[in-house]
């Protein structure tokens, strides 16, 4: 069978035997896939240090219709992202993004999703403002996946929200609620909502945030209410608590 060729980024790897690795990849043309890389743990493997989380490149993969696990035939590295490990915040953010993709990703082609993830991982590797970059990358990815919070209209009465209006954030409802609807959640002013909108559309390119801790808390509440499905995100605690 001929090998398919596409771009991919490594989300997670785990050893399968003494010499073999199973990798979970986000591909540009085939969504999230599991591949087996035979011999990848051998010292002189052709995959070498390439199968590391967050590394991207062109892969050649042999798909088998009747299997969930496909064979990795080749991997030409595009960009190694060892730099992400040099910042704990960047590492925690990159891990949480990978976990969201592993949880929500499908096998459908999704070039926009791939582009959002690569942009975020590139920015995290480059190292400036890892807090804002990680939040921007995660919110952008959630937006592409259809999980963005609604901030332009009240999620309860449907009324347009004024730019300066103070609103509440209702994680279970998936967005903000106007003052008339008396939301119980965290209060968000216009400035914070604009930052949140910017994060959702940023693709990971954002300079700095007024209150990163509040943004992380908001993301936590949104993930638990909208994406978690009673399976807590393992990376979330490190993302919330890691020292800057």
């Amino acid at each position: 069978m001929a090998a398919a060729d596409t771009r991919a980024v490594v989300l997670r790897t785990h050893p399968y035997s003494e010499s073999t690795v199973i990798a979970r990849l986000l591909t540009e043309d085939f969504g999230v896939r599991s591949v087996i890389a035979k011999g990848a743990r051998r010292p002189k493997s052709r995959f070498g240090a390439l199968l590391e989380p967050f590394t991207d490149g062109r892969i050649q993969v042999r798909f088998r219709d009747d299997r969930d696990l496909h064979t990795l035939a080749g991997f030409d590295v595009g960009r190694s992202r060892q730099g992400i490990g040099r910042s704990l915040r960047a590492f925690a953010g990159a891990s949480l993004l990978a976990e969201i993709l592993l949880r929500t990703g499908t096998e459908d082609p999704h070039p926009d999703l791939y582009a959002a993830v690569i942009t975020c991982y590139d920015a995290l590797t480059d190292g400036s403002e890892p807090d804002a970059v990680a939040l921007g990358g995660i919110w952008s990815t959630l937006s592409v996946l259809g999980f963005a919070p609604r901030t332009d209209q009240c999620i309860r009465c449907g009324r347009d929200i004024d730019p300066g209006e103070e609103t509440g954030f209702d994680p279970a409802g998936g967005g903000v609620a106007c003052a008339t609807c008396r939301p119980r959640g965290r209060r968000l002013d216009g400035v914070f909502r604009r930052e949140l909108d910017a994060l959702c559309g940023s693709g990971g390119r954002i300079e700095a945030l007024d209150d990163p801790r509040l943004h992380r808390e908001l993301l936590r509440a949104h993930l638990i209410a909208q994406v978690d499905q009673d399976r807590p995100f393992r990376s979330l605690d490190l993302f919330l608590d890691s020292p800057a």
Binding site: A49, E52, P53, F54, R81, Q82, I84, G85, R86, S87, L88, F91, S242, P243
Partner: peptide, 11 residues
């Protein structure tokens, strides 16, 4: 010498 090993070192 991996991303995870490096993050552990930073921590």
């Amino acid at each position: 010498p991996s991303v995870e090993g490096e993050a552990t070192a930073v921590y």
